[in-house]
Amino acid sequence: MTVLPKDIPGDSLKVTVGTANGKPGDTVTVPVTFADVAKMKNVGTCNFYLGYDASLLEVVSVDAGPIVKNAAVNFSSSASNGTISFLFLDNTITDELITADGVFANIKFKLKSVTAKTTTPVTFKDGGAFGDGTMSKIASVTKTNGSVTIDP
């Protein structure tokens, strides 16, 4: 049996954390987006972790974005102690894959008090994996961190 590389060099799934701005007490939304989904033969499963400074940001909610089908079954998240974990699994293993680019999740943060303008990162942590529509590992994932700026 011969195994051929399935990824064209330079191609990767792009996962990007967005940015937001606000004043202390505001609730802002930071999107997590996927790009080049079709090039990577869709997404059938993924789990990953984001870190944030809990002294500056309070997670209000984490909701599935419009590219997630049947989110009540296929999407899960949790947030505590400065870490947000995400889990997606197409429970049907074929019919509810992520097949389009767009917003995977929206994180709502309540901004805490600061004395001066502060930009705090929302960054990928170690761990996690992504699988394509056949549940094979997506070897190349380009992750881009985001941030939230609090301006009193």
Results as ranks from 00 to 15, higher is better:
Val3His: 11
Val3Lys: 08
Val3Arg: 11
Leu4Glu: 11
Leu4Pro: 12
Leu4Ile: 08
Leu4Cys: 12
Pro5Gly: 08
Pro5Thr: 08
Lys6Pro: 11
Asp7Cys: 09
Asp7Gly: 11
Ile8Arg: 09
Ile8Tyr: 10
Pro9Arg: 10
Pro9Phe: 12
Gly10Leu: 13
Gly10Ala: 11
Gly10Arg: 14
Asp11Gln: 11
Asp11Asn: 14
Ser12His: 13
Leu13Asp: 05
Leu13Pro: 07
Thr16Leu: 11
Thr16Ala: 13
Val17Trp: 06
Gly18Tyr: 12
Gly18Val: 09
Gly18Glu: 08
Gly18Pro: 10
Thr19Ile: 09
Thr19Lys: 11
Thr19Val: 13
Thr19Gln: 12
Thr19Asp: 13
Thr19Leu: 12
Gly22Ile: 08
Gly22Asn: 14
Gly22Glu: 14
Gly22Tyr: 08
Gly22Arg: 08
Gly22Cys: 05
Gly22Asp: 08
Lys23Met: 11
Asp26Ala: 12
Asp26Ile: 13
Asp26Asn: 11
Asp26Val: 11
Asp26Trp: 09
Thr27Gln: 10
Thr27Met: 13
Thr27Glu: 11
Thr27Ser: 13
Val28Arg: 10
Val28Ser: 10
Val28Leu: 09
Thr29Tyr: 11
Val30Leu: 13
Pro31Asp: 13
Thr33Phe: 09
Thr33Lys: 13
Thr33Cys: 09
Thr33Ser: 10
Thr33Asp: 12
Thr33Val: 07
Phe34Arg: 00
Phe34Thr: 08
Phe34Glu: 03
Phe34Gly: 08
Ala35Arg: 13
Ala35Cys: 06
Asp36Thr: 08
Ala38Trp: 08
Ala38Glu: 10
Ala38Ser: 12
Ala38Arg: 13
Lys39Gly: 13
Lys39Thr: 11
Lys39Arg: 10
Lys39Pro: 10
Lys39Val: 09
Met40Ile: 11
Met40Glu: 08
Lys41Asp: 13
Asn42Thr: 11
Val43Cys: 10
Val43Ile: 09
Val43Asp: 04
Val43Tyr: 01
Gly44Tyr: 00
Thr45Gln: 00
Cys46Gly: 05
Cys46Thr: 10
Cys46Lys: 00
Phe48Val: 04
Tyr49Ile: 01
Leu50Asp: 07
Gly51Val: 09
Gly51Leu: 07
Gly51Thr: 08
Tyr52Thr: 13
Tyr52Cys: 10
Tyr52Asp: 04
Asp53Tyr: 14
Ala54Pro: 10
Ala54Ile: 13
Ala54Lys: 08
Ser55Met: 08
Ser55Lys: 12
Leu56Val: 12
Leu56Asp: 12
Glu58Gly: 09
Glu58Leu: 10
Glu58Trp: 08
Glu58Tyr: 08
Glu58Gln: 10
Val59Ile: 14
Val59Ser: 09
Val59Arg: 09
Val60Lys: 11
Val60Thr: 11
Val60Glu: 10
Ser61Ile: 12
Ser61Asp: 08
Val62His: 08
Val62Ala: 11
Val62Glu: 13
Ala64Arg: 06
Gly65Pro: 08
Gly65Asn: 07
Gly65Glu: 09
Gly65Arg: 12
Pro66Tyr: 14
Pro66Val: 10
Ile67Thr: 10
Ile67Gln: 12
Val68Leu: 12
Val68Phe: 08
Val68His: 10
Lys69Phe: 11
Lys69Trp: 12
Asn70Cys: 14
Asn70Arg: 13
Asn70Met: 07
Ala71Pro: 13
Ala71Gly: 14
Ala71Lys: 12
Val73Asp: 12
Asn74Leu: 00
Asn74Ser: 03
Asn74Cys: 03
Phe75Lys: 02
Phe75Leu: 12
Ser76Leu: 08
Ser78Ala: 15
Ala79Asn: 15
Ser80Thr: 12
Ser80Gln: 14
Asn81Ala: 15
Asn81Gln: 15
Gly82Trp: 15
Ile84His: 00
Ile84Ser: 03
Ile84Glu: 14
Ile84Val: 07
Ile84Leu: 14
Ile84Trp: 05
Ser85Phe: 04
Ser85Pro: 03
Ser85Tyr: 05
Phe86Met: 02
Phe86Ile: 07
Leu87Ser: 13
Leu87Glu: 02
Leu87Phe: 03
Phe88Pro: 00
Phe88Gly: 01
Phe88Asn: 00
Asp90Ser: 00
Asp90Ile: 01
Asp90Asn: 03
Asp90Glu: 03
Thr92Ile: 00
Ile93Phe: 15
Ile93Ala: 01
Ile93Met: 03
Ile93Thr: 02
Ile93Gly: 00
Thr94Cys: 03
Asp95Ser: 05
Glu96Val: 04
Glu96Ile: 00
Glu96Pro: 01
Leu97Asp: 01
Leu97His: 14
Leu97Thr: 05
Ile98His: 00
Ile98Gly: 01
Thr99His: 07
Thr99Asn: 06
Ala100Gly: 09
Asp101Tyr: 07
Gly102Phe: 04
Gly102Thr: 03
Gly102Glu: 04
Val103Trp: 07
Val103Met: 03
Val103Thr: 05
Val103Arg: 05
Phe104Asp: 01
Ala105Cys: 13
Ala105Val: 05
Ala105Ser: 09
Asn106Phe: 07
Asn106Gln: 08
Ile107Asp: 02
Lys108Pro: 02
Lys108Phe: 05
Phe109Cys: 03
Phe109Ala: 01
Lys110Leu: 02
Lys110Trp: 00
Lys110Gly: 02
Lys110Ile: 04
Leu111Asn: 04
Leu111Val: 07
Lys112Thr: 04
Ser113Met: 05
Ser113Ala: 07
Val114Pro: 08
Val114Tyr: 04
Val114Gly: 08
Val114Lys: 14
Val114Leu: 07
Thr115Gln: 09
Thr115Val: 07
Ala116Cys: 06
Ala116His: 06
Ala116Pro: 06
Lys117Phe: 03
Lys117Glu: 05
Lys117Ser: 05
Thr118Tyr: 08
Thr118Lys: 10
Thr119Asp: 05
Thr119Met: 12
Thr119Leu: 08
Thr119Ala: 13
Thr120Ala: 10
Thr120Met: 03
Pro121Ile: 05
Val122Phe: 12
Val122Thr: 07
Val122Trp: 01
Phe124Ser: 04
Phe124Arg: 04
Lys125Leu: 05
Lys125Met: 00
Gly127Pro: 02
Gly127Ser: 03
Gly128Thr: 02
Ala129Ser: 03
Phe130Glu: 02
Phe130Cys: 04
Phe130Tyr: 05
Gly131Thr: 01
Gly131Trp: 03
Asp132Arg: 03
Asp132Leu: 00
Asp132Trp: 03
Asp132Ile: 01
Gly133Phe: 06
Thr134Ser: 07
Thr134Arg: 14
Thr134Tyr: 04
Thr134Pro: 01
Thr134Phe: 06
Met135Glu: 02
Met135Gly: 02
Met135Lys: 03
Met135Ala: 00
Ser136Gln: 02
Lys137His: 01
Lys137Cys: 01
Lys137Asn: 02
Ile138Ala: 04
Ile138Met: 09
Ser140Glu: 01
Ser140Asn: 05
Val141Trp: 01
Val141Ile: 05
Val141His: 02
Thr142Tyr: 06
Thr142Gln: 07
Thr142His: 08
Lys143Asn: 03
Lys143Gly: 01
Thr144Val: 05
Asn145Lys: 07
Gly146Ala: 06
Gly146His: 05
Gly146Arg: 04
Ser147His: 04
Asp151Phe: 15
Asp151Pro: 15
Pro152Gln: 14
Pro152His: 14
